[in-house]
Amino acid sequence: MDFKLLLLYGFLFGIGFGFFVQKAGICFAHGLGEIYMGKGKRILRIFLVIFIISTLGFYLSKFIAPELGLKPIGQLRGYGFYNIISGMIFGAGILLNGGCILGTLRQMGEGNLLFFVVFLSFIPGMALIVYVIDPILKQGYQVQNILLPELLAVPQPYVVGSVVILALFWLVMLSRPKKK
């Protein structure tokens, strides 16, 4: 498929993502705040619904095309040390301005001009890593990022099946009305 057509598809899918994210009100900065406050039910239910549908969809996709299926997302950098550090920095950043990536994009679409400022202030942070820190660290991604089934040395279907059942069970537990 030629790249321009791919971009058009991507943009249209993006409109769909933005539409549903805004309608549902998905933001993990908000979600983390809820969890820290001990009230994480809403974000947990949102996350579990996304997790169940995506895990099944991504796993089953390998029966459609061999090059699909579960993929190790992101790189395990420095035996995972940098993943934790960058997760901490990212977590701190989103709690500071109240918008994860989806939250920032959503609020830009909702007319909150503060998040155009946030969006632009990504640039110095990214440039600092890409042009300053990365060359220094030079520590490549020598550790091959793997999936949970590989780590546990358990065939994918069993791991996928059990995590999805666990997630479904947790979602149902969270959704049943409180009996007085």
Partner: peptide
């Protein structure tokens, strides 16, 4: 003024019937 607040407030307070 945050559209997310008017979604999460009722849901978070759902348990306080």
């Amino acid at each position: 003024d945050d559209p997310l607040a008017i979604r999460s407030i009722p849901e978070e307070l759902e348990e306080f019937e």
